[in-house]
């Protein structure tokens, strides 16, 4: 069983690699062009970029930076009434980078991801996703912008099976309309088949094949977390936001989850924002780390730099003094 999947899988890895190569080749051409000082017209840019981020109401911005930078948060501030959730946050994530956001409970990590995904409306600052800059990200356009996310407290569709949950991750890419679906027109059938194959592929990669037909609510918490990751990955996002994907997991499960996240980065080249409490996991998995404390960025850099940062050590020592902060 696994053998079959493996054969299948290697092919799609090859395809993914090829895609990545092709896109880095075009990136190279693009770089050369910008070195020569050519202004690349928007039409050409959209050939280089993957579809649909240049749209009306979006401020144009640094073209070169837009290529490699999947996410740029600039001076973002969010308050609930009088309470500041986070203030003047800067955060840049390159394509293919795993960027951990750490900090004590209540530091504002989830709020930051919620603001990036358009669920919260920040007071000031901006969020740039690919080439599109927003003062408030439109949540309903997130999928079209190539962003997928998971939630700290699971947001699965309880009434659907694991397989259907993963399929629903492709809702934003659905093209065939209702009539075509109901009448079973060739276009709709082809699309449905392609979607099922994609979902089955992700399910196999994340070791969920054994529970694919189970109602998602009947599964253990850790497995549900994995289903949520699968739902996000099936869309092949350029930017992936993961809010504590390993919360409540055993060490083995965490290692497994780390592997899935790393593989997703390799195969999709996604930029990944990862909120995680386990410092060991963060050190092993991430390329860069941003540390929040009381809504402020107190440090950022490589895992080693951050680990050695006195402000971070102080914040975490402070954490050790507050036992209730340890609770999820």
């Amino acid at each position: 069983m696994r053998q079959i999947f493996a054969a299948d899988e290697s092919l799609s890895w090859v395809r993914a690699d090829f895609e990545a190569m092709a896109s880095s080749a075009s990136l190279l051409i693009f770089r050369v062009q910008s070195l020569l000082g050519q202004v690349v017209p928007l039409r050409h840019r959209s050939v280089v970029r993957r579809p649909s981020s240049a749209a009306s109401g979006v401020l144009a911005c640094g073209v070169e930076a837009a290529e490699a930078t999947a996410l740029a948060v600039e001076g973002l501030t969010l308050a609930f009434g009088g309470a500041v959730a986070f203030e003047a946050i800067d955060l840049t994530v390159q394509a293919g980078e795993i960027h951990a956001v750490i900090g004590p409970n209540g530091a504002g990590k989830s709020s930051l991801i919620n603001a990036i995904s358009g669920l919260y409306a920040p007071q000031s600052g901006s969020v740039r996703i690919g080439a599109a800059r927003f003062s408030r990200v439109p949540a309903h356009r997130l999928a079209a912008l190539g962003v997928a996310r998971t939630f700290q407290n699971l947001a699965l569709f309880k009434g659907l099976s694991v397989f259907e949950n993963v399929l629903s991750g492709l809702a934003g890419a659905q093209r065939a309309g209702l009539a075509a679906q109901m009448l079973g027109l060739p276009q709709a059938r082809r699309e449905a088949r392609a979607q099922r194959e994609r979902a089955a592929d992700v399910i196999a990669r994340l070791d969920l094949a054994g529970v694919a037909d189970r109602p998602v609510g009947t599964l253990p918490f850790g497995v549900q977390k994995r289903v949520e990751l699968a739902r996000a990955l099936v869309a092949r996002p350029r930017l992936l936001l993961l809010d504590e994907p390993m919360a409540g997991m055993t060490a083995t499960e965490k290692a497994e989850m780390s592997r899935f996240i790393r593989e997703a980065r390799e195969s999709l080249g996604s930029a990944i924002v990862l909120i995680e409490h386990d410092i060991g996991v963060v050190m092993r998995l991430s390329d860069r780390v941003t540390v929040l404390d009381h809504g402020r960025r107190i440090a950022h850099g490589t895992p080693a730099q951050v680990q050695a940062n006195p402000a971070v050590i102080a914040a975490y020592l402070g954490l050790a003094d507050e036992p209730e902060a340890e609770a999820a």
Binding site: A139, L142, A143, F157, L160, S168
Partner: peptide
Amino acid sequence: VAIRDQEIAARIVGV
């Protein structure tokens, strides 16, 4: 069903 079970997540996945 997605809207019924988790409206926010439904919007995020592009429903």
